[in-house]
Design a protein around this nucleic acid. Structure first.
Length: 492
RNA sequence: CGGGACGUAGCGUAGCCCGGUAUCGCGCCUGGUUUGGGACCAGGAGGUCGCAGGUUCGAAUCCUGCCGUCCCGACCA
């Protein structure tokens, strides 16, 4: 027996860690709070990145790259943003090490090499970008600026979790500049739709689109839109955010443009991002006790073919047949691997690829060849089927689509079953403690009540859903009047 | 930053209470037999017992300090 995964039931956190580590997505590293993304995990990220990147370009954006370091004076320019991130910033104070005169072979920070101005390692890039945009924008003819960057950022978190929250993580951050508020708001909403489209249709994770309350808003934003996903343990996960920044950064960095009446106006801004955290969400939304379950559209490997043979002669015959099949599958654009490694037996391979979440497994043995069939196993349901070898590539192509759809539908059914209405406080707590998931409830709209609910229940307002149904009611905590329900949940 | 657990071969562990140079499983190497759900036999390699001090003839084991990791909480994408 090889790698054993802790069951979800027994210890959800450990189950999650086991999937990441034993599934080969990532490793712990020598750096506290930082992880190594292994080739299999990075291949998954690359697939996600490529799709998103294409979507960004289709919506008119271009990629650029801004510095990792932000001078402190720039960082603090937009006060709310700076305050919001201040307590999780890594700061560079020196630029040189030297040999320790008292400890041979060791190094110390050279006290002579103190920077005149500290450099903040970016927790997000609005500051450095808006400082740059100031030089790019004079006229309305320079607008809009639609830029995205793929980058790493650092947020010095107290507590880390693989993919969900690490000190350093990879993400993309879009930063756009517009002549009007209307246009900037449209951009903010457009990118939210792009994220929702990506997460639902490529990652097979259903999301709820909504707006954050002022409390939960991005520091420095006028409005934060989000997509919220639900994990199998009933906790919510913010999967992406898109911010309407108003003129806050333009004012902080003095970015003005002349409109067509030669009037000077401050520029309107947006920013939006998704990160490697999505991988954590993907894992927790779909996987089971046997390992990862990856949606075909972004799985690094979509099909693995395992030969079953006695002796080299049989293996040769099977391999000849498989090579033809591999070619056919590749011609259809399917990512396939033929695992003819002699070191592991079929049973081992079955378990290993299930652990890694490969959507479809094809097994071919001598017996199958005699009958001109192969055995097809799908990862999501674990169903096995014997199908004719002839035309099997089309069967697989269809099956991959079916798996993608099934994964989404299953996750959506789970999500929908876990949106529960609560009308009284006791009911609210009871749902959170027993069933979890989203709780739809009335709230009086004040930050104080929101805080109080969070303190008492550990649940936060995940969002006010877009196009939310208006309904008279009373706040579950204070009994004050409310005109719509909002979604609460305990969250990652 | 608080609470808890832990640190012994690549991984998972026993030994620690009661001090005598380290157990077992997986993995790895060699050879052979195997291959339809994590194969078997035989032989073999691999260890600063987290780090630094201390006690002792002798420390994985006892004492002190430090470091690190994970889990739970507060904070956050």
């Amino acid at each position: 027996m090889g790698k054993v995964i802790t069951s979800k039931e027994q210890d959800y956190s450990q189950w999650y860690n086991d999937l990441i580590i034993k599934g080969g997505l990532a490793d712990y590293s020598a750096v506290r709070g930082c992880m190594v993304i292994k080739p299999y995990g990075f291949a998954l990220w690359e697939n996600m990145r490529d799709v998103l990147d294409r979507m960004f370009k289709e919506t008119g954006h271009q990629n650029a790259y801004f510095p990792l370091f932000v001078p402190k004076s720039l960082f603090e320019a937009e006060e709310k943003n700076a305050e919001g991130f201040a307590k999780e910033c890594a700061v560079v104070t020196h630029y040189r090490l030297k040999s320790d005169p008292e400890n041979k072979g060791k190094l110390i920070v050279d006290p002579e090499a103190k920077l005149e101005e500290e450099l903040v390692v970016r927790p997000t890039s609005e500051a450095i970008i808006w400082n740059t945009y100031k030089g790019w924008i004079q006229s309305y003819r320079d607008l809009p600026i639609l830029v995205n960057q793929w980058a790493n950022v650092v947020r010095w978190e107290m507590r880390t979790r693989l993919f969900l929250r690490t000190a350093e993580f990879l993400w993309q951050e879009g930063h756009t500049a517009h002549a009007t508020a209307i246009e900037a708001i449209a951009e903010t909403k457009q990118m939210l739709e792009v994220y929702a489209d990506f997460v639902e249709n490529w990652m097979a994770v259903p999301v709820i689109k909504g707006v954050k309350t002022p409390n939960e808003r991005f520091a420095g934003a006028e409005d934060t839109y989000c997509i919220e996903a639900l994990m199998q343990d009933g906790k919510a996960l913010q999967a992406g955010t898109s911010h309407f920044l108003g003129q806050n950064f333009a004012k902080a960095f003095d970015v003005k443009f002349s409109d067509n009446n030669n009037q000077l106006e401050y520029v309107w801004a947006t920013s939006w991002g998704v990160s490697t955290r999505l991988i954590g969400g993907l894992v927790m939304a779909h996987s089971d006790d046997d390992g990862l379950i990856l949606p075909p559209k972004i799985a690094p490997l979509q099909v693995v073919i395992v030969p079953i043979y006695k002796g080299d002669e049989q293996k040769g015959v099977i391999s000849n047949e498989v090579h033809i099949l591999v070619k056919k599958l590749k011609a259809l654009g399917i990512r396939v691997k033929y695992d003819d490694n002699d070191n592991n037996r079929p049973g081992w391979k079955f378990a290993e690829y299930e652990l890694k979440g490969v959507p479809v497994r094809v097994a071919i043995g001598a017996r199958d060849l005699e009958n001109n069939v192969v055995e097809i196993a799908r990862r999501d349901t674990k169903h096995k089927n014997t199908v004719p070898l002839k035309g099997v590539e089309f069967y697989i192509q269809t099956l991959l689509e079916e798996i993608q759809l099934h994964m989404y539908n299953k996750a959506k059914a789970f999500r929908d079953e876990h949106i529960t209405r609560a009308n009284h406080w006791n009911e609210f707590i009871h749902i959170l403690d027993t069933k979890a998931g989203f709780v739809s409830a009335h709230w009086d709209g004040t930050a104080e009540t929101e805080e109080k609910i969070k303190e008492l229940s550990k649940a936060t307002i995940r969002c006010i859903p877009l196009h939310n149904e208006q309904e008279e009611g009373v706040c579950i905590l204070t009994g004050k009047p409310s005109k719509e329900r909002v979604l609460f949940a305990r969250a990652y």
